[in-house]
Design a protein around this nucleic acid. Structure first.
Lengths: 241, 241
DNA sequence: TAAATAGTGTCTCTAAGACATTATGTG
DNA sequence: CACATAATGTCTTAGAGACACTATTTA
């Protein structure tokens, strides 16, 4: 924001590259998973990485995130939210790369994976069984994303993005337990979710071994509603750069 | 993160410029203020803007924020926190500019303002009396920063960064009131801040018209402490890009 | 009727909010 | 003493957590 009118020349300065990286979460087999791609080229060839790529000159950041996501993995129509911008010099051996990281949440059943020509493999990893080492500083980004997901879960309806249209209340509880990494009380969960008034009862039931369970869905105009699950003391986001 | 090893050429792609912009808050005259600079050149000549500038190739983002802050305003030794990255095409008429925005909190008494050669004026503005129009999309950034400041106030010890070393509990309460924009109950505030155990009593008193007031300071190792002031329903951050 | 899973009810305790009261200085 | 401001105390209520209980299916 600081240049002279007459002497301004866009090419005067050497510029960093700008990428978007997207940490994509889903719930699969009742466990939280994250999508990674296996790099086919230098640098970090053969390493798993968070999908992402360069931002085009005429493209908004979020738009770039959606495009890269679809190009590299086939995933589309996702909930997206900006996470943090990572820009330490040296995080990419090619050149100075500043990466705007996003979090995406998707319903597993809605997705078909696709391998792009940039990578040799695409896979969902359970967050508890990640590859030993990721490309670039992607471990840091991923850690940051998980921590943000946890904390936002408690004061937003974010978890709803991970579930199919119809689900039982105990499935929803299980989702919370997966992300928070701890058990929740059944009765209290029922009470809270009902009080929050964000769910709509359907006539559908699902049968299993015991008593059949009622299926619910999220109320259509839930955007203005706040579901505050719980207060927690550790609502701190670490800083990074 | 997606290029061929043999054909990779850093200069192949046209690149956006990357800047850092810093929204600096202080408490002055018992009111929340924000620091703006008056632009001396095209574009938006004569408009007030959030201080900021281009990121150097070998410099971390936060480091760039500190440098620009000191160069443009003389402000240093501040609490800094990344806010959001704004990157819509067209937000800067010169070229594609992606701006990583930061929030800074400073103690007013610790600062001497300085005007750089890029701008014609530097001034603290009360957040309730901002200039009618700001340069670029800086109104949006500023709004975002204020909203983030409000929400973080309630679950962090952020407000402490705005106060001098010694202060009374009612001054602290006043700071909260300024930022939250509402009155708080005196008794309840005393109770909460004492329970939180983040303050250290000093022997100093300050005299005024009525009963003198005791001065306190923040406990040295407060970094690991969490002061949770209150829960609020509207803890939602709007999205942007 | 036993096992399995779904769903409800209730007791206790903490903490927030409202508001009343006491304390300690000055002119 | 009157006034001004600082600081503490108390009552009520909402909500979180713990946990016991009831409901409805299949084998």
């Amino acid at each position: 924001m600081a240049d002279d009118a007459s002497t301004y020349d866009p090419s005067k300065y050497e510029r960093p590259s700008v990428t978007v990286d997207v940490v994509i979460f889903t719930l699969y087999n009742r466990e939280l998973h994250v999508l990674l791609v296996k790099r086919g080229h230098w640098p970090y060839e053969g390493y798993w990485a968070i999908p992402g790529g360069f931002v085009n000159m005429d493209e908004a950041l979020e738009q770039a995130a959606r495009r890269e996501l679809e190009e590299e993995t086939g995933v589309r129509d996702v909930y997206l939210e900006q996470l943090f911008t990572f820009g330490d010099p040296g995080r990419d051996p090619r050149t100075r790369v500043i990466s705007v990281a996003y979090i995406a949440l998707v319903r597993f059943d809605a997705q078909k994976l696709r391998v792009s020509d940039e990578s040799t493999d695409v896979r969902w990893f359970p967050v508890r069984e990640l590859p030993p080492a990721l490309a670039f500083d992607h471990e840091k980004i991923l850690e940051f994303a998980i921590s943000r997901l946890r904390s936002k879960l408690e004061y937003t309806t974010l978890a709803f993005q991970l579930l199919p249209e119809y689900f039982s209340i105990l499935e929803l509880k299980h989702t919370y337990e997966q992300i928070l990494g701890e058990k929740l009380d059944k009765g209290n969960f029922y009470r809270k979710i009902k009080e929050a008034d964000v769910l709509e009862e359907t006539t559908f039931m699902r049968e299993g071994r015991g008593r059949p369970t009622r299926l619910w869905r999220f109320k259509p105009n839930r955007s203005d509603k706040q579901f505050v699950f719980r207060w927690r003391e550790d609502r701190v986001e670490s800083k990074s750069g």
